[in-house]
Design a protein around this nucleic acid. Structure first.
Lengths: 191, 191
DNA sequence: ATAGTATTTTAACGAACGTTAAATAAAGGT
DNA sequence: ACCTTTATTTAACGTTCGTTAAAATACTAT
């Protein structure tokens, strides 16, 4: 196992442990044990426990979010959001755990103030982004703002169900729920 | 401070600490420090750390849930759910933190397998209960199941926003979102 | 006053924690 | 072959953790 490989392997195992036992419940010794390396190797590649945790959130989680956001294309808005949620079912185990850990920090169930501030900033961008996406489909709607808000709220629960509670949500179920919230909108872009 | 008072005070402080730092991040010494009693007093009233945590979930959380569920009456279904969510804003600090801790366990972000099983059982009762509540209003609807599911999902996010993220949600905002999901239902019970 | 019970504290136990110093081994270029 | 840099380990440090034994104090009924 060459240098960078071991570094990645440590991060991989760390994600599992932070996920299963939280920041304080995770010990460097247990990580080293599962990686099958000696304890100070963790300190060879990471300055300390906190920086290992931080890197997972700052790099892995936010990369995952960006990757995921720039992936989809569909001109039917219900299809768009259905795929957006449905494909979470098939995320790899590592990505899913990184996502789960991010949500844990997002809900301020773990991590420190610095990470929380990052999450707050990110959260502020969510509603405007979806308003922009939905703009062509919500023309002339009186309750456009509430609709977008409700959709974002629904998406959040669906994400939590798949990623945090580790449930499988069928595509039709997802589509049904999104359609209920989006009913009254145009489904295809109008010009 | 008489006996039972101190016991309650310990539990109160414990709720704060478990909430702020999680199970593993909380230390008996810190709790005793904030309670202003000596460390072994915690062990005089509770067998150990785990039983202190367990009692908070098993007694305080589930009592709160029951109390909350048996409180509301309204013949307009949108009013009913709006009040149900809105009044969470005004929960006392202790109740809110107990609720938050319960959700943390519910999402398996804390606690052990035994508590998770309790939460799973409780979760299974949620959907049927709301189907029962909504029955008079969803007669003859083809997508009744999906509607109830969507509503429950929306409620979950609203609860998380108020209780976990500690946001204040205005009554109109809540009503708007519930109305969007429930549109198409009768709002008053039909006979 | 006294005996007995309930409450509270001081002091300490062993274990596990995050972290580091120092030594060793492996790899690569010259 | 030798030197330099990189990778890895052994062993230990000081601290904090959950927990308990034993002693001290306060309360209550006789």
């Amino acid at each position: 196992m060459t240098g960078k490989d071991l570094r990645d392997r440590i991060k991989e195992v760390a994600v599992e442990h932070f996920n299963a036992h939280g920041y304080h419940g995770t010990t460097i010794r247990n990580i080293a044990g599962d990686v099958n390396c000696s304890l100070p190797m963790i300190y060879y590649y990471f300055n300390n426990k906190k920086e290992l945790f931080d890197e997972i959130i700052k790099k892995e989680f936010f990369n995952l979010i960006k990757r995921q956001a720039s992936q989809l294309k569909s001109d039917d808005i219900i299809d768009f959001y259905t795929e957006f949620i449905y494909h979470l079912n098939h995320l790899g185990s590592y990505d899913k755990q990184v996502y789960r850990l991010g949500i844990k920090v997002y809900l301020s169930f773990d991590g420190d103030e610095e990470l929380m501030n990052l999450m707050d900033e990110w959260e502020k961008s969510i509603l405007p982004r979806h308003r922009e996406i939905l703009k062509p489909y919500t023309k002339n709607m009186i309750n456009e703002k509430a609709k977008v808000r409700t959709l974002v709220h629904l998406l959040e629960t669906l994400i939590i169900n798949i990623v945090v509670k580790n449930r499988y949500l069928a595509e039709d179920e997802i589509r049904e729920e999104i359609a209920i919230v989006l009913q009254g909108c145009d489904t295809k872009e109008s010009d």
